[in-house]
């Protein structure tokens, strides 16, 4: 009797919940769909970036032959006698980035080795937030710093240095990418198994010898990945160079001279009032395409190398 009752109750509750369950399943399906849509926004954004850059650049390359773009040594799109050679802007981008790397790579590597192999936990607790703060300062503030603090300081050493130059912003870019370089290469070094260090100590090596001859070589791909991602950041840096490196395209490899970078050119044009669809308007997309291709390439190489160091251990 009792058993039958329970059976009938559970039976009716199954009947009741069938429509209930269907509604619930539909709701679950809709929610999953909505979440998927949100996740697809990043795919859409990537595709749209490529599409916008390529679409406007196609218009640009209908007027400007690709060969001129790559070989002409003048960039004067807004002059009466326009030249569209990307080389001067590219040189500016490369020089400022190289100056940045000359600062960031030695300082970053030494700091990372120290933090990973020597520093006490307490010192690391102090340094980490400082580096985070250094990474959080808005780039426009770094631009101010490059123009009004670093360049005057450098002029004190080299009085002939012009007010706009690539050296000051380059140094500031180096300091800006320092937190990224340090934290990524420290991650790589901390991923090196303790065994390797212990083996080295057992052979009588000092901490310093172990750090440079065992840990750093074992973490090479991760450290190089840190450099590459740092380069990518330096190449795309905009406000520091737009403020402190000057606005005139200048084909030179001398960091003491002023020169515009690809990013500074885009800012300069955007500040003016160029009509939509004009060649000047299209030229910032062509310049942006060059920048995007460069950073994509660096990012891909960097992430492949980071993956590699993760797989080894």
């Amino acid at each position: 009797m009792e058993i039958r009752e329970t059976v009938s109750i559970s039976h009716s509750s199954v009947m009741e919940s069938a429509s209930h369950r269907r509604a619930r399943r539909r709701r679950e399906f809709l929610i999953e769909g909505a979440l998927l849509l949100a996740a697809l926004v990043s795919v859409a954004a990537t595709i749209t970036i490529l599409f916008v850059l390529v679409f406007e650049s196609v218009g640009f390359f209908e007027t400007v032959p690709l060969l001129d773009f790559l070989t002409d040594t003048l960039w004067t799109p807004l002059f009466d006698d326009p030249h569209y050679g990307i080389l001067p802007l590219l040189a500016g981008t490369i020089v400022t980035s190289v100056v940045g790397l000359v600062v960031a790579i030695p300082v970053g590597t030494v700091s990372a080795v120290y933090l990973s192999e020597f520093a006490s936990a307490r010192l690391r607790e102090i340094i980490k937030p400082v580096l985070e703060m250094l990474g959080a300062v808005p780039t426009v503030v770094y631009g101010y710093f490059a123009l009004l603090v670093v360049t005057p300081a450098l002029q004190w050493i080299w009085p002939e240095l012009p007010g706009f130059n690539m050296l000051g912003p380059g140094v500031v870019i180096g300091i800006m990418i320092l937190p990224l370089v340090i934290s990524l290469s420290e991650d790589a070094m901390r991923a090196v198994p303790m065994m390797l260090r212990e083996g080295s100590y057992a052979m009588g090596a000092t901490r310093l010898q172990t750090a440079w001859r065992v840990v750093v070589p074992a973490a090479t791909s991760g450290i190089v990945a840190a450099y590459v991602l740092g380069i990518s950041r330096a190449v795309g840096e905009t406000m520091v160079v737009a403020i402190a490196a000057g606005q005139n395209p200048n084909l030179t490899w001398n960091p003491m001279e002023p020169a515009a970078t690809i990013t500074a050119y885009i800012v300069q044009v955007a500040l003016g009032d160029l009509p939509h669809g004009s060649i000047g308007y299209q030229s910032i997309f062509a310049a942006g395409l060059v920048l995007a291709v460069m950073t994509f390439a660096f990012n891909i190489v960097g992430h492949l190398m980071r993956k590699r160091f993760r797989e080894v251990y």
Binding site: L53, L291, A292, F298
Partner: peptide, 17 residues
């Protein structure tokens, strides 16, 4: 991952277009 590494000014060009 890729969007995280795109220079911010490229987002500006995307928005402009």
């Amino acid at each position: 991952t890729n969007l995280a590494g795109v220079p911010s000014i490229i987002f500006g060009l995307l928005a402009l277009g």
